[in-house]
């Protein structure tokens, strides 16, 4: 993705990623830079082959320093010289968990969301479950338009009434029934039939042992203070 098109090709910029100075291609999105360095952050509405959409907000990261920090959707955000990024600050984790909680309350039967809940150690869902299917990530809409060239489906309605449909909710000749929308849909598969939890959360795969950011590789855990860890510096000593 090249949003930062004014930068010359080939020249790298330096960014501070979780306290480490690393190089990034100015044509990358922030998410691409984060993924390049092997840091795993959750995404739901993102796919490498499609235009970033920035709506699930699970890929939020914290940028800036001092009292000028904010959360941004990394899939849409450009990289620039000197950008400071924290992928797992407490604020980020808390936000991701609440967003996932909102999503699971809407679609508790999604395996994808349940797996993500286990990874993020989400412990409870405080909202009334609605038992919907679609999480409105828009991957199918973009797939249909950008990769299949059909534009057979799109969004209708607004706010909580938003849904995905064909024009005028009618059978559409534009749709070739290619199934690409089903292929890319993250929630089309059923919830895993493991331990039948009494709560909305399946909880079957939650790792109950607190771990220090498992996917970052050993290097990160020697940093004092650790700037990426979920637990905060005081817990890592």
């Amino acid at each position: 993705m090249s949003q930062n098109s004014q930068a010359p090709r080939g020249e790298m910029v330096k960014i501070m990623l979780n306290g480490a100075e690393v190089q990034a291609d100015p044509h990358w999105s922030l998410l691409e830079a984060i993924q390049f360095y092997g840091i795993d952050i959750p995404t739901l509405c993102h796919d490498e082959g499609l235009t970033p959409y920035g709506v699930c907000r699970l890929c939020v990261v914290e940028i800036g320093s001092g009292d000028k920090t904010k959360l941004v959707a990394s899939c849409m955000h450009p990289v620039w010289e000197g950008l400071e990024v924290r992928t797992h600050s407490n604020r980020v984790i808390k936000t991701r968990k609440t967003i996932l909680e909102l999503l699971i309350a809407r679609c508790p039967s999604s395996k994808k969301l349940q797996d993500m809940a286990a990874l993020l150690e989400l412990k409870e869902v405080r909202f009334e479950p609605l038992n919907d299917d679609c999480i409105l990530c828009g991957l199918c809409v973009r797939m249909c338009e950008e990769q299949m060239g059909a534009k057979a489906i799109g969004f209708a309605g607004r706010g909580p009434e938003r849904y995905i449909t064909t024009p005028f909710d009618m059978n559409s000749e534009e749709c070739r029934k290619c199934g690409a929308c089903m292929y890319i849909c993250p929630v089309v598969e059923l919830r895993c039939q493991g331990p039948q939890a009494e709560t909305v959360l399946c909880s079957g795969c939650i790792n109950t042992e607190p771990v220090c950011a498992p996917d970052y590789g050993e290097a990160m855990c020697f940093m004092v203070p650790c700037l990426s860890c979920v637990k905060g510096p005081e817990d890592v000593k």
Binding site: G54, V55, C56, R57, I99, L102, L103, A105, R106, F127, E128, I135, L136, F155, G157, R158, G159, P160, E161, R162
Partner: peptide, 21 residues
């Protein structure tokens, strides 16, 4: 605001619905 939210991003669409509830 819930009725006027476009519904594109999750926090606004789902969050306002829940806040209203």
């Amino acid at each position: 605001l819930m009725e006027e939210s476009c519904g594109k991003c999750v926090p606004c669409r789902e969050g306002l619905l829940r806040m209203g509830e």
